[in-house]
Simulated scan of single mutants.
Amino acid sequence: MISIKSVSKSYGSKIVLDNINLEVPKSQIYALIGPSGAGKSTLIRSINALESIQEGEILVKGVSVHSKQTNINQLRTNIGFVFQSFNLYPHLTALQNVTYAPIHVKKMRSHDAETKGKALLASLGLEEKCNEYPGQLSGGQQQRVAIARALAMEPQLMLFDEPTSALDPEMIKEVLDSIRKLALTGMTMVVVTHEMGFAREICDKIVFMAEGKIVETAHPEQFFSNPQTERAKDFLAKVINH
């Protein structure tokens, strides 16, 4: 589904991504974890060209994301992206947020988009919130609307950039439960997360990054019980004991 080949990116003299190579197969869930400043968000944002790259290539279903020949808007219709800060339209209801892109981008009939949008919101426990505006919703509810909005485009790939980092602790579980449900459908996902228990439980692979490099890639049980690098051991000692 995703093929990242020798990708590098710098801001001036600061190397943000340093020769990244990664393959994400269809229907697999990969967690990107690591300390702040490791390059995780830059990497996930570069998968749908929200960030540019200076070297290498990223392919999604065989299409080169950063090629000048690629119609990026068309490619993005296959890639759902959930931000840490929700990014909902404040002047639209929950349902209108979910139906906006299917109606305006996919030219779906309003009635069909609304039927589908209501079903998506209901599947995420939000059937009562269709006509409420983002300002009337809790952070966890807003993030679930954002997930429904991404799913409304029927993407083949979902990217999550720290989807729970802006949430109060009691709201984190409802968002993670929504992602767990999505995992059961066989959706291909890449998740940048600080939630180690979630990463261990749900993900097929852990990709540990530090200083712009992929330091270690392993199955969750292996990574959490027997990390192979000193950098990973140091990181886990800090995050799991605190």
Rank of each mutant, 00 (worst) to 15 (best):
M158C: 14
G80F: 01
E57G: 11
K106S: 15
V60D: 03
I172V: 14
F86G: 00
E195C: 09
G39Y: 03
G56K: 13
M153A: 06
Q228T: 15
S36T: 11
K173R: 15
S6T: 11
L176T: 03
A119N: 13
A38S: 11
G125A: 05
F160I: 06
D112V: 15
N19E: 11
K9W: 06
Q141C: 01
N71M: 02
Q84D: 05
I179V: 08
A49F: 07
L236H: 01
S165R: 11
V24K: 02
T70D: 13
P227K: 00
Y30I: 13
D177T: 12
V191H: 01
E170L: 13
Q96E: 15
D18Y: 11
T193H: 11
P35D: 10
K205G: 01
P35I: 01
F81K: 02
I20G: 03
D204F: 09
L22T: 09
A152Q: 11
Q143Y: 10
P227C: 02
Y133R: 05
D168C: 15
P25W: 06
I206E: 00
Q96I: 04
T193E: 15
I47E: 09
E162K: 07
L50H: 04
T70Q: 13
L167H: 00
I206Y: 00
K213W: 03
D112T: 15
K116H: 15
Q228V: 13
M108S: 08
F160A: 00
Y89N: 08
D18G: 13
F198R: 10
M209R: 06
E127L: 14
E154Y: 12
L184W: 04
Y133N: 02
R45H: 14
V105E: 12
H194K: 09
Q96D: 15
Q156K: 14
Q96N: 09
N87D: 15
P169K: 04
E127Y: 08
E57L: 04
A122S: 08
K9G: 00
G186M: 06
Q96G: 11
H111D: 12
M209K: 07
K233S: 15
A146L: 05
L182A: 13
M187S: 14
P163T: 06
Q141A: 10
L121W: 02
I214E: 11
G117L: 05
S225H: 12
E128R: 14
